[in-house]
Design a protein around this nucleic acid. Structure first.
Lengths: 232, 232
DNA sequence: GGCGCGATTTGAGGTAACGCAAACCGTCTG
DNA sequence: CAGACGGTTTGCGTTACCTCAAATCGCGCC
């Protein structure tokens, strides 16, 4: 990947959005590139944290395993998203495992390099706090959902959020352009595979969704899903 | 409150921990002081965010109200904790309401002042990110708990966490030194007042806790609570 | 094409936790 | 001290969701 391509990626990353060209250029120059095959991980929960990553293209699923062996999906991440930084700044082991659900390319900076960049360009640090703040708000919202809403609403809201950040418009409706299993949805919403399957089956019967027994979900009637996600 | 007192508070705040005395002094000089009576709020969810607060003494409960009128308790905050900063940095309205559960004194900086401090003292920004990272990890842990564990475990874990950050040792055991209602615990663990009451009653019968029908909980057998919070 | 594997669907039964309702008890007020 | 009030306790019926179990289907592989 040449420098121009790297700059293009850096430009798109939320972390660098709106910063002056010199900053982008300097950031791009000091980045390494890393490719992760579908099914492989960028790093593992518990590894010592030493690098910041930005997704150039592809898609990651951020998993967290509990001491008693259960797994939850914290979020999906796509181009422009920042991976690993929280742990690096805190100097603690990575608290989760990002797994590539499709072939993914990332830009990589060492802890030291990123630190230099931040010292040299204070707005970078502000941006970073901004992004972390976004994560906090997102987590608070999800916590609130899991704590107070029933399963059907949570599943609807989760599908809508994913569609909002990764959906592609097609003739049939909004398509989620990667393999999102019922198990994934269960682990995002704090329920079981079976309950998700039942719920989706119902929605497919009602014509709200398409994607029976297969890979890619298509939302045919987003409006209905919104209603469900907001129903009292 | 004189300058020496303010410096002492600033010194204790995690945000400033370990920074050089000049920084502390400068921060302390530019701070305002604000007192909030028990039952009053520092600001309200939805207000425009313009100020950073650090708790000097006292205790706050951070509440979030959902569109459909439900309430959840995000966390309790005590001396040294940072309030409101996430929203200020993101330039979004405050996402939650901090309510004083006892008379509370805070140091206040305007957005602009804090920005100046951060620009002048880069380590401050690093500390801030560190703290935000801590919040993210805490939220991820709670999300995982609510999503995968059953109510009894969640209540046990929540009481232990609160005891860990605010508990005081007494002859009878570890006391939680402020009024923590069953309703509060319910709103922290994503369950109902009734279920919390039943669960605590059981534990009190078993001698794990004290505090029947009254203000301050005392943990008599922390070890048992830990077991419950980890039980398969 | 036949086989086997993993993901999904669907059924049936059980239960943790909710929702409603009533009683209870400190505490503050007049 | 009577009375009212807010937090708590407890009982009981209900239910949303889980758990266990089995059938079904798509897909890659030989």
């Amino acid at each position: 990947m040449d420098k121009t391509a790297r700059i293009a990626i850096v430009e798109r990353a939320k972390l660098f959005a709106g910063l002056p060209p010199e900053t982008l250029s300097e950031a791009a120059e000091t980045a390494q590139v890393r490719v992760v095959d579908k099914g492989d991980v960028v790093f593992r929960q518990g590894d010592e944290a030493g690098h910041h990553f930005i997704v150039a293209w592809g898609r990651l699923r951020l998993d967290q395993t509990t001491p008693d062996g259960k797994n939850i999906v914290l979020r999906f991440m796509g181009p422009g998203d920042l991976v690993g930084s929280v742990a690096v700044w805190r100097k603690v082991p990575y608290p989760a495992t990002p797994l590539a659900v499709e072939e993914t390319r990332l830009l990589v900076w060492s802890d030291a390099r990123m630190m230099e960049l931040m010292q040299a360009h204070p707005p970078l640090a502000m941006k970073a706090m901004n992004m972390m703040g976004g994560r906090i708000e997102e987590l608070q919202e999800r916590l609130q959902q899991v704590a107070t809403q029933q399963v059907e609403r949570r599943i609807a809201a989760t599908i809508l959020k994913i569609a909002g950040q990764s959906g592609r418009k097609t003739e049939a409706g909004v398509e989620i352009p990667f393999a999102l299993s019922r198990q994934d949805l269960a682990e995002m919403t704090g329920t079981t595979l079976h309950t998700v399957s039942r719920t989706l089956s119902g929605w497919i019967d009602e014509g709200i969704l398409e994607g029976r027994r297969s890979s890619h979900l298509v939302i045919c009637r987003p409006h209905r899903l919104v209603e469900i996600s907001e129903q009292a």
